[in-house]
Design a protein around this nucleic acid. Structure first.
Lengths: 205, 205
DNA sequence: ATTTTCATGTAAGCAGTTACATGATTGT
DNA sequence: ACAATCATGTAACTGCTTACATGAAAAT
């Protein structure tokens, strides 16, 4: 289980309320880990009881008050120990692959529209990732390919990492965010190419 | 929810007992959908109550009796209607990506071994997939790349598709199994390349 | 007036995992 | 003697989703 840990990482990158976390899980973090606001509030409450995070009431003008959470020492320690224990290479669940094999027992051509929809969704995500990469990780050294290592630069993303990041440098933080984003880009590119292969295969029936 | 449907597809490809299904979910189907035997027995019972599958007691020598399931008309219809309704492009959960971003707040270099473990696991799976492809989908037309479209050939896998496959041809079944396998191969290749990128990034700290 | 955004929750239920249990046969 | 394979299950629990609920401000 890693929702707790995903929340810890997100709060270390920047403290925020349950609501703000829920929105991050529709963006950056959400590209590789999803969670609804209900789930987030519940886990956040448990984490607060366990002393992993601490809340601070923040009054706002024109908006409801919010409870801004940040990571406590116990939470940081919990993250650290999780990082040091091995996890199983993940267990995938590809509904679409089930559908494709199932199509052999129903009309294969009937799946074309569905596969095209998925292809479109992946193309959209790819465009979104590439836009994010161009914005947050502009190519530094000239003669460097778009989705290749970018060296350190003044962060356009971070605003306040609150309590001493204690771990590593903001340089590391940026570079690691970038390599994860490159993973998303590689994934979407692979999916698009594969879905084209699927479409070509379906068209033979 | 697609476990029911994954089971239906597997039973359409070949009828079998709960135990046999559990083993298939460690192999072919399991590459893109996992399930434990407990889960399978429970769902199988529900599906039997709903008339999606029918069981037949099979006595065996030297082994316990087994209950061999095959897909009933209602089950085939349920699969068909599921195939025709759109599903959301899937929601990924990448623990490793959480770890990588989390490593910025702990020791980045400490993650190298873990990432190498995952790289190895993906390399093993790739080798396994390629071996399966070579065995079950031998290249047909000469001057054809290894993981490219293979035309029809006498099936080395199927043994008895039982009750009329009603949907499409065994040709379609083979080709669709192959294109799903090619997806697995593309996925593993992408992961290996990305994990190399991750390792290179981690080594800069 | 209505919808959207901000903000936080409760309640019910389903899917899936982990642990435990049984019992015969086959292989080392 | 011990472990592995075949075969089927129950019980307890955790994680996550869906539906429902409230309430105020800002935007259309």
């Amino acid at each position: 289980m890693a929702l707790e840990h995903a929340i810890l990482v997100s709060l270390l990158e920047k403290p925020g309320s349950g609501y703000e976390l829920a929105r991050r899980f529709d963006r950056s973090i959400g590209y590789f880990w999803t969670a609804t606001h209900q789930q987030i509030y519940r886990v956040l409450k448990r984490m607060e009881n366990d002393g992993w995070v601490a809340a601070r009431e923040v009054a706002q003008q024109g908006r409801p008050d919010k409870r801004e959470y940040s990571v406590a020492d116990l939470g940081h320690a919990a993250l650290s120990s999780w990082l040091h224990e091995p996890i199983e290479p993940e267990t995938v669940r590809h509904d679409l692959a089930v559908k494709i094999r199932g199509a052999a027992f129903d009309d294969p051509a009937g799946l074309v529209r569905e596969v095209e929809r998925h292809r479109q969704a992946h193309a959209d995500r790819l465009a979104h990732y590439l836009a994010g990469e161009g914005r947050d990780f502009p190519p530094q050294s000239p003669a460097e390919a778009p989705s290749s290592p970018a060296e350190a630069s003044p962060s356009p993303v971070r605003e306040g990492s609150s309590l001493a990041p204690s771990g590593a440098s903001p340089d590391a933080e940026r570079e690691l965010q970038h390599v994860v984003l490159r993973g998303g880009i590689a994934y979407e590119r692979m999916m698009i190419a594969w879905l084209d292969d699927v479409l070509a295969t379906l068209h033979r029936f």
